[in-house]
Nucleic acid binder design. Structure first.
Length: 888
DNA sequence: TCTGTCACG
DNA sequence: ACGTACGTGACAGAC
């Protein structure tokens, strides 16, 4: 069999990985994205190519012979950013642990080492694959050596053979050097022949074959000017060619023995992966092993199928006074979901699986356990359990711990809180994902269709994971002083959110349909008008096609570009609106289509047939700041700003005639929070005296008396206040107000001069973030901001704005969460029929019973305003109406 | 699956 | 010299 070797340009590949991936860091803020990308790529190539030998070459910092010969070589190259630099030693350590050969020598670049190794391997009759992001390596291609070039994003690969090089570039591998000698290379500062570009160089090489032959026959060059250029740059061309030539005779000792692929040091590799928090690789290693630690012993799990067994289990749970639960349901809408099975684990090791279909007659026994507040329950994403039980009239009580929420408080910026992910992270295990059981996307099946033994095992694994995680997470929460927030806010809030989901928001299906028909008529009309004006039919929804029509066909000026083409967003369109009547039509079309697709069709799709309501999901572990998010549908972005869209709110109505809707919103909660945190006297005064805060800001920033502020000035000041909350920048404010950066800076300076306390808060927030690595909110919610330490201006600036904004947005989130708990509890305590049904960041929507109007209005106002005592008052405005639209 | 756009606070 | 406002989710089209 033909033996193979992979030769990797380490510097080039880690570079590609670094710029191709988002700035991943460990919890401690160590950058790991480039190493991660590198290892990913390594595994992929390894698996595809299965080589017997491997080596990775690196550049050294020391000057190479090229620098010695030519001082300007690679001059002007940017230094490697610190975030990447610190990853190099990590990568090298990792390669050593993996027992992968690596080479680096003072005075030579990785390319030269690769060139030398390639020729050596050709002699030894090995087939080589050179892996690099640098096209210079194409000169090394031969019938035994292929070159794999990684393009952007790392997943895009191109493999070159001599033939494909000729096909693509019209030169042979060895002519590649001549090509560069002629064209030069600005990135390496190689001069080449001035005025000769790729086209000319290729033509010349086709004619002569090489630079040397061309020099001997310059008189054959037809083009007079070109000939002169070349004749006066002969030395430079030869010199450039030499710089571009990869050396193949570096004095380095090579032996096949050293290059041989060996198996990695498993233990150490695992340790490094753990340190770097590369959980997917850990999982990969483990699944490659023959047995897994989690292979559950079925004999330890008792399957329960009759009343007697349920009672025995109930007794055991009662004695333990604590259990871990995982309930499997069918994957439908909240109100249609059914329970398939229930896994329960007790600390003494007893593990049960209840076959739900067979214990239907034992629900009372279960209910007694689940509703007993003295029996504590722990789980993962336990809102799911609450909702499933709710359907059977069981109200899960005594919720003690939710591992997903615990991890959310510890790491609010994680992308996944799936149980297997966090179990594997925190305990270095190799649990499989739920996805491996039921698949994803169109292949997804329900737990009903799964082999029962698999469910039994998986349920036991989840409960075990929760049990083990709880021990660790509880300590961590305690250490970071997050226990109070966890126990007193987030855990009780689960039930509130579950109830909101279960209750749902009634909508008028008919009204939605007729609104849809109306919109359809308008859309059809607009489409034909747009086609007429464009002179052809095209897909108006396609930004690409629209861009072609507007900027190519109609020759309108392109104002902004995106990375894929012309920008056609609303700002651009508004600027073009006077240039062509089609623009206004497109703006109108967009508005209607948005309403139709997202808010008419989208909402109709999710109306529950039985309840005639929309049951959105409220997620507690999504946002980085502590806010709640709403999905399927998102009820937190129903239109309001424009009248046309606002009409949608007319379809949101109370359950029946006995109810009205109450909408209670905090007035200026974020600015009040800012006043509280910063203790700025001016800002505090505005709220203490209940003055209009934007007018006040205008009066200060524009230096006019309060009662002489124009509406124009007030509106500018409002933008300034928004900017302050977002972590202001002159550019952002300028963009928003359509003024120059300089003017914007003037506003900002003026603002900070008048609100010194706010200014010092901003500085303090950034300082604190840099010092601690995180910032906090009023309730000590925490967000890590590794971006603050970045050497990249943009990333660092983003970190600074985050440090300023998160305590404000996050504290506001804390306040409304507490308010939700208080309102919910008070309505319960008084046995009222009114119910909290929605939260939209600074507003609560309550379905209010006709007989409870005054009482509930008072409760909501009081509990919201007194949720958390700040040094400025909180103010809540309340509106009632027969639809959400009417609560204004 | 990613990108652009646009709806909300 | 750099190129941004903070936090979300849904939809359609391009790839």
């Amino acid at each position: 069999m033909q033996e193979k070797i992979i030769i990797i340009d380490g510097n080039s590949l880690i570079n590609r990985a670094f710029y191709g991936l988002p700035p991943l860091t460990t919890k401690d803020g160590i950058y790991t994205n480039a190493v991660y990308g590198f290892v990913n790529m390594l595994y992929k190539i390894y698996e595809d190519y299965r080589p017997q030998y491997i080596s990775v070459a690196f550049d050294r910092k020391a000057p190479t012979f090229r620098h010695v010969e030519y001082e300007a070589y690679k001059a002007g190259r940017k230094r490697m950013p610190e975030e990447l630099g610190q990853q190099l030693p990590i990568l090298k350590e990792l390669l050593d642990v993996m027992n992968i050969h690596r080479m680096e020598i003072d005075g030579f670049e990785a390319d030269d080492l690769i060139g030398t190794l390639v020729r050596y391997c050709e002699e030894k009759n090995l087939e080589s694959l050179v892996v690099t992001g640098d096209r210079d390596a194409l000169q090394l291609a031969s019938d035994k050596t292929r070159i794999l070039i990684t393009k952007k994003g790392m997943t895009d690969l191109e493999i070159y053979t001599p033939d494909s090089i000729i096909e693509r570039y019209e030169v042979t591998p060895s002519q590649f050097i001549d090509l560069k000698g002629l064209m030069g290379d600005p990135s390496d500062n190689i001069p080449g022949v001035p005025g000769v570009g790729e086209k000319t160089a290729i033509k010349l090489l086709k004619q002569f074959g090489s630079i040397e032959k061309m020099i001997q026959n310059t008189k054959e060059i037809q083009n007079q000017k070109l000939r002169e250029k070349i004749e006066s740059n002969i030395e430079q061309a030869i010199f450039s060619k030499r710089l571009a030539t990869i050396k193949t005779d570096v004095p380095i000792e090579l032996s096949l023995e050293a290059l041989k692929r060996e198996s990695p040091n498993q233990e150490k590799l695992m340790e490094v992966f753990r340190r770097l928090e590369f959980h997917s690789f850990i999982q990969k290693m483990k699944t490659n092993e023959e047995t897994t630690e989690l292979d559950t012993d079925m004999t330890k799990i008792q399957t329960i199928e009759n009343l007697e067994d349920v009672s025995d289990m109930a007794e055991a749970i009662e004695r333990a006074a604590h259990c871990y639960i995982k309930i499997f349901g069918t994957g439908e809408n909240v109100r249609n979901r059914k329970i398939v099975g229930i896994s329960i684990l007790i600390d003494d090791g007893h593990s049960y699986y209840l076959e739900f279909e067979k214990i239907g007659q034992s629900l009372d026994v279960l209910k007694a356990i689940f509703e007993n507040e003295n029996i504590l329950k722990s789980g993962h994403n336990i809102k799911n359990e609450i909702l499933l039980l709710q359907k059977y009239g069981i109200s899960l009580t005594g919720v003690d711990f939710d591992t997903s929420i615990a991890v959310y408080l510890l790491e609010p910026t994680r992308t996944s809180y799936e149980i297997h992910e966090i179990y594997n992270t925190y305990l270095g295990k190799n649990m499989n994902s739920e996805e491996t059981l039921i698949g994803k996307g169109k292949n997804r099946i329900t737990f009903l269709d799964i082999d029962r033994d698999m469910l039994v095992k998986y349920g036991h694994q989840v409960c075990t994971a929760v049990k083990e995680l709880k021990k660790i997470l509880a300590v961590e929460l305690e250490n970071l002083e997050l226990k109070k927030l966890f126990q007193e806010v987030e855990i009780p809030l689960i039930k509130v959110l579950a109830d909101m989901e279960y209750e749902g928001f009634r909508v008028d299906h008919q009204m939605l349909s007729s609104l849809g028909k109306e919109l359809n008529g308008k859309i059809e009309q607009l489409v034909s008008e747009i086609y007429d004006m464009a002179g052809e039919q095209f897909n108006i929804n396609s930004t690409k096609q629209l861009g072609d029509i507007l900027f190519e066909k109609l020759k309108l000026p392109a104002i902004k570009k995106t990375k894929t083409g012309y920008s056609t967003n609303i700002e651009v369109l508004e600027k073009l609106s006077k240039k062509h009547p089609i623009i206004a039509k497109i703006i109108e079309y967009r508005q209607y289509v948005k309403l139709k697709s997202t808010y008419i069709d989208g909402l109709i799709d999710v109306i529950n047939e039985k309840t005639k309501k929309i049951h959105s999901s409220f997620n507690q572990t999504v946002t980085a700041t502590g806010r709640i998010s709403s999905t399927e549908p998102n009820l937190q972005n129903i239109p309001i700003r424009l009248e046309l869209g606002r009409e949608i709110r007319k379809v949101f109505i109370p359950t029946d005639d006995n109810y009205l809707l109450l909408d209670a919103d905090y007035s200026q909660i974020e600015l009040r929070v800012l006043a509280h945190i910063s203790q700025d006297p001016g800002l505090m005064e505005a709220f203490e005296k209940e003055q209009d805060v934007h007018t006040m800001t205008a009066s200060k920033v524009f230096d006019v008396p309060f009662d002489q502020v124009t509406s124009q000035q007030r509106s500018s000041a409002k933008a300034v206040n928004f900017g302050i909350v977002y972590g202001i920048s002159d550019f952002g404010l300028a963009e928003n107000l359509g003024i120059t950066k300089k003017e914007a800076q003037k506003y900002i300076d003026e603002y900070f001069d008048k609100y010194r306390g706010v200014k010092s808060y901003m500085n303090q927030a950034v300082e604190e973030g840099k010092k601690n690595g995180y910032v906090t909110t009023i309730l000590n919610r925490r967000r890590y901001i590794p971006e603050l330490l970045s050497s990249n201006y943009n990333i660092r600036s983003f970190g600074e704005r985050t440090a300023m904004n998160t305590p404000i947005q996050g504290s506001a989130a804390d306040i409304i969460k507490v308010a939700m708990l208080r309102v919910y509890d008070e309505l319960k305590r008084r046995n009222l029929r009114s119910k909290l049904i929605l939260q939209v960041h600074d507003e609560l929507i309550v379905e209010i019973h006709q007989e409870e109007i005054e009482e509930v209005k008072q409760i909501v106002k009081k509990e919201m305003e007194e949720a958390i005592q700040l040094t400025v008052p909180l103010k809540v405005d309340i509106h009632l109406g027969k639809s959400w639209y009417d609560t204004k």
